[in-house]
Structures are given as structure tokens and as C-alpha cells.
Amino acid sequence: MALSKRQRARAIRIGQYALLVVVVVALALSADWEQVRKAFFNTEIASAMFPNVITVALKNTIIYTALGFAFGLALGLVLALMRLSSVAPYRWIAMVYIEVFRGVPALLVFIAIYYGVPIAFQLQFDPLSTVMLALGSVGAAYMAETIRAGIQAVPKGQIEAARSLGMSSARATVTIVIPQAFRIILPPLTNELILLTKDSSLIYILGLFREQYELTKFGRETLSRSPSLTPILIAGLCYLIITLPLGHLSRYLEKRTGGKKISTPESTGLGVSA
């Protein structure tokens, strides 16, 4: 019996659903649910993690991320303005910085700042400064490119209007261009914040006091005392508490700005040098 094209498509779809049901049922029947529960969600281990997982670990993750983001945003803005400078060496310096810090692992930057700098310069950063400098200097490289694209996406007419009212180039950049650029790049900056939240876990390689633990370190430390995946699962859920709302925020902001994707032209020759 020959099936029509529509009938064949329908048969294939039914087959796909059937396969899914078979696999799920087989897994459910074969699994030792008690074992699974112990492995993934041991309530004793889980409840022992509270309240410290929130009051210490989650709090520290947020603090570390916020510090790194703030430093990275400030440095990123400076780098973006350097990238657009009419002074060529500024452009080169910013370009080299961005390429280097985007191209090496963030972990290497943590190691360099925490272990490398003291050896080279007799200058020891505490973990808090390390996480701010390391996360910030990596984040800055990404944010610089985003901010530059945002600045270049501000319509040329806005700058002309500002200049025709007697504003200097620098004044127009600060008063008109940068505030508008940040409106444009709010969604990608929120995504950058999500990435930094996850990268804050890299601090686990540093020697930390217990009250300095963030989520990853806290989960790992609990793991060493309890033979269960529960601590990692809890830590993971705590990350989602931060990142899921940020992801929604980013999508909402993108929708509000009309979902405009900003282009990243190499140069539009706008007079926005600092």
C-alpha cells in the first residue's frame, strides 16, 4: 500500500513520539529510584547546606560578579572610546588588549593575577581584588566591543544636533552619545553579566577562607564530605536563580528596543573621539 506524502509525514511523527515514550518508560522501569534520589537529591545533605549556601555562597557569587562587572564596564568604556579615538596608538593599544583578553582562558588570567603578579612584583592581591581585576579585565574585552558597536549605532544626526548647539565633540559624546549607546546595548550587556556570573566560579582555584566561598567552591567542598551529587545540584540551582531572571530580562529589553540587532561596522567615521 503506497502512502501519500502527507500520510508518510504523519507516520514518521507518530514513530518519533512512540520512540520517546518507549525510552522514557524503559528508563523509569529500570532505574533504581531510591539510588537515584540518594545520588542526586539527598535531602539530609541538601538541608545541611542551608542556610550557608544562600547567606554565604550565593551572596559571595553575587558580590564577586558585581565587582567584576563594575570594573569591567568602566574599563570596557575606556577601551571602546580608545578604539574610536582619532589617535592611532590608542586604537592599537585597545585592539591588542581586546584580542589578547578575548583569546586567553579566563582561568589563566586568574592564575596570572593571583600567583603570577606576586612573584613578579612583590604585590599580593587578596581574593576579592583578584576576582574583581581578573573577571573585570576579561569582561572588559568583550564589553568594549559591545560598547563600541553601541556608540556607532547612535544615529549621526544626534551628534550633528549636539554639535550644532555648540557642544564640543567630547561634551556631545558624554552627554548624548554614551547615554544613548547604553540604551542600545543593554540586552547584550545583560548577557555579559550572565557569563561573568558563571566565570566567577573560577575563583575556586584561589586559597579562600570558608566565609569567602562562592557557589562552586561551596558545592565542591560539601561534595568532599558527602558521597552524593546533591551539593553540585544545589549549587547549580542557585546559579539558575541568578541567570534565569537575567536571561528573561535580556530578552525583554531586546523586545522593548524593537529587537534591533546592532551591527558592528569597522568604522563609520563619526566624530566621537574622546
Binding site: G157, Q158, E160, A161, A162, S164, G166, M167, I176, Q180
Partner: peptide, 20 residues
């Protein structure tokens, strides 16, 4: 030029009000 421009008002085809 910035000082001179304060005395010259300019109105553009596309308005160019500061959108923020």
C-alpha cells in the same frame, strides 16, 4: 567653532531631537 555655533540655530530635516 563651538562658541560660534551657539549663535547659529540649526533645524534638521529629520528633527534630531535627543531621543533619550
Amino acid at each position: 567653532i563651538d562658541k560660534a555655533r551657539t549663535k547659529i540655530g540649526m533645524v534638521f530635516q529629520s528633527f534630531n531631537l535627543f531621543s533619550h
